[in-house]
Write a protein that binds this DNA or RNA. Structure first.
Lengths: 292, 292
DNA sequence: CTGTTAGCGCATTCAG
DNA sequence: CTGAATGCGCTAACAG
């Protein structure tokens, strides 16, 4: 008791003895992206509530760096791992999972092994967004699909194509284009798309950052939004409501994504994963000025 | 060599033996704030380059939580600590510092002990912003100063008052008001200020989020920006260039703030802190539409 | 129920 | 220069 004179038990020694470190790993492509910043906040909050600390690792969209941080987290003996929007292929992912005690994937699915996933229903999200544009009378709708390796982007593409089909519209491959998931990526590809395909009257974007880039491209080309071309984003980051025109978008519960993930992870760590190994959260359409 | 069959040295055991864990602690008020997200990116990048992992801790602007995460980082035996925008008072800060091996403060100064600091020259920043408004002919300039405990806010206030004095203007206490450092805080206080002090023709804001809130308040009140009231922000987060009107603001090198901090910290850890224990980075005025 | 002891997996030291 | 012993600060299993 008299150890008030400055003593803290060593978590390191305890970790060695118990094989539990009280730490989690969180790997994301980029914390500066508002999407992942909110997920990180949710993860950190949930972890703190249960006495865990979390290692933050950025992969900077680089698979090699992702592999490297994953290895360092192995050495740190984290009790659990949150792998967010992994850019690894399925085989790599499988070995990573096998080398860690417990892992939960975010925005990604891995069949077979009993690894948990927390996802957004992106197919429905893509469908809702595209459907909105179709109902507004658009017939030539482009899809700026983000990174080719993005699982979310692929799911949204499914919804996009399904909505076109449901409306009896033809899917035009030239209207779907990959882009970097940031403002500059959206600006560049939207500019190119709008100049080479004059028939386009609507753009469905991978995320809000891409949509903001698309807005800029429209402005440069003198195309009015939403009169000449409608723009729909994804995520509903705070920025979406603040740009002009305000973005119509698909809201994703980012903080909840993080907190639910960490809850599932901690359940698995504590053995009480009640069979529930897959959580899917629903996106929600938010209609603003860019596509009324 | 044949340990290819899945073996990773235990960083835990190594940490126990060497008394160095290869981990750093990063404590920030809120990662979802774009300012701290960029700082975190800089810290993580620099740490990764030197083989360190970093624990991310949010204090959520709560001093008790700050103390709690600091304690948990002690137990984790981090090799170094980056304490960003601490909301602790000087006495608390001093004991925290004494209990950690090495720490570098960001946006905060602590005289006496040889603790390193990396800061923005916020007094100059406040001076530049206020000066710009004065030169544009404004005489009644309010200051929305953010949290009362913010060291940055206090420094910017000094620059604000100095610029007023330099121009022979009188400092009006009722024109300087604290607010939460987010959009809602700026909106609320700007609204109140503009309705109770009709003479105000310019608002200098603690950060860009507050400035965006001020923009919203102006819009609600039917005051045109910049014709009726000029607005200046701080930080130059990506959002600043994307709102309408685009924000005039004071750019802060956030990523560099993080990377320089971690470099200083690692130098101190390795004993080669070449006397350079205080780094101050310069802000830079960025003139856009909200205050030409 | 309190007090003692044997590892946890490394790095460091010392002897060979 | 290679190989075996000691201890880092805890927890868990054990004995008193």
């Amino acid at each position: 008791v008299i150890e008030r004179l400055g003593y803290r038990p060593s978590g390191i020694a305890r970790g060695l003895a118990t094989q539990r470190t009280g730490t989690l790993g969180l790997v994301v492509p980029d914390v500066a992206n508002p999407f992942f910043a909110d997920v990180a906040r949710g993860v950190e909050h949930g972890a703190y509530a249960e006495g865990y600390n979390v290692f933050l690792c950025n992969t900077e969209e680089d698979p090699d760096r992702e592999l490297a941080v994953l290895k360092s987290l192995e050495e740190k003996r984290v009790d659990g791992l949150v792998l967010c929007s992994s850019r690894l292929d399925e085989a790599e992912l499988r070995t990573v999972v096998s080398r860690h005690r417990t892992v939960v994937l975010v925005n990604r699915l891995l069949e077979g092994d009993g690894v948990g996933s927390v996802l957004i229903d992106d197919e429905t999200g893509g469908w809702l967004a595209t459907r909105l544009l179709i109902e507004a009378g658009h017939r030539a709708i482009a899809y700026l699909s983000g990174p080719a390796v993005s699982h979310s982007g692929q799911q949204r593409a499914k919804g996009y194509r399904a909505a076109l089909e449901d409306a009896g519209l033809y899917f035009e491959a030239a209207w779907a284009r990959h882009c970097s998931p940031m403002v500059a990526g959206g600006q560049e590809v939207a500019y190119d798309l709008l100049t080479t395909h004059q028939e386009l009257s609507a753009l469905f974007c991978y995320n809000d950052l891409v949509a903001v880039g698309a807005l800029q491209a429209c402005s440069e080309l003198g195309r009015r939004v939403p009169e000449d071309v409608a723009v729909v984003g994804y995520d509903d980051i705070p920025l979406a409501a603040l740009v002009t025109p305000a973005l119509t978008t698909c809201r994703v519960p980012r903080y909840e994504l993080g907190s639910q993930t960490v809850n599932l992870l901690l359940d698995q760590i504590n053995g009480c994963s009640g069979g529930c190994e897959q959580i899917v959260l629903a996106p929600e359409l938010v209609v603003r000025a860019s596509a009324p």
